[in-house]
Amino acid sequence: MDTFDHYALPVGSAGKLSAGWWGVWALIVTEGALFGYLLFVYFYLATQTDEQWPPEGLPSLIVPTINTVILLVSSAFVWASERCIRLRQINRSIGIMMLAIILGICFVMVQLTEWSNKAYALTSNLYGSLYFTITGFHLCHVIVGIVVLMLLLIWLSLGYFDDKRHAAVTIGGVYWHFVDAVWLFVFTTLYLSPYL
């Protein structure tokens, strides 16, 4: 009977065959939907408002663009870190993961500076409510992502992972890529769409 084949099967959390890999994608779908609804709220209210939109006029693009690049580079580093594990270069993987975390922290710092430079606050007007809620949601996700990356760093340093077994890095990594990818949508909505 062909369902009873006698070939060797992987045991436990084997990379993309693990349940966690599927689980994190389900999480990404539902979180992606969350950001979809956040941006829906933005556009729904933006199309019906009589207020000056955004209140300060067209937003300056220099700092947010640099910040976007920082986040994307950090994503590339996480990808490289996982690749190094597969090439059995654990030390290099640890170094690159550290850089990714530092870049993530840089993004948070720059974003907080952006916040403090705004002339309005969460409750000043409708735009402020939207701006701070949407970027706040994203910032929370970045912080969670950084905690995940730090855990991966600790586990890597403890020698938990090698080229055969590192599902946690694959799973944590794809969450970080998601957090970065979703920023592109937030960035486009909040910073680029007012120019249209």
Binding site: S13, R88, Y160
Partner: peptide, 22 residues
């Protein structure tokens, strides 16, 4: 979430410890 050996989420002890070198 801590990776566990019983769940085969991490290497068998120490085989890939970074101190042993790449």
């Amino acid at each position: 979430m801590w990776p566990q050996k019983t769940l085969a989420q991490r290497t068998v002890s120490g085989t890939a410890h970074p101190l042993q070198g790449d």
